[in-house]
Amino acid sequence: MGENRRVRILIGKAGLDGHDRGAKIVARALRDAGFEVIYTGLHHTPEMIVETAIQEDVDAVGLSILSGAHNYLFPEVARLLKEKGAGDIVIFGGGIIPKEDVRGLIEKGVKAIFEPGTATGEIIDWVKENVILRNL
């Protein structure tokens, strides 16, 4: 890969949850901010998300989960990424996630959780600071 590569981000919808307003807005805001963005579309399993992340050589995976299944889906994606030797891909996310669940998710490898009401600018700034180009 050339030196001029841009940061690539996979925005994913894991599980059966169909709420995609937030995911699509974040995908579009990150694209408008100059990142390369891939959006999975709905209803992906953790395996499918990890496979796409690896195939597409992304630097970060952002997951949106509003179905209450976050305590299963986030750690599962983190585990599978590590298992496939891609543990350096940054994981972040958002959705309907109670504050008391956030710490557990961070311990399991999620770098940041954004709560409802977060401005897109805040997410963009965070990505700029926390996601670096991986060594491919």
Partner: peptide, 22 residues
């Protein structure tokens, strides 16, 4: 819940973590 809404029984692998949640 999501599995019922999407046509999966509670024991389907795709229902993992979602049974009774939403």
């Amino acid at each position: 819940d999501m599995p019922t809404l999407m046509g999966y029984d509670c024991d389907h692998p795709r229902a993992m973590g979602e049974v009774g949640k939403e």
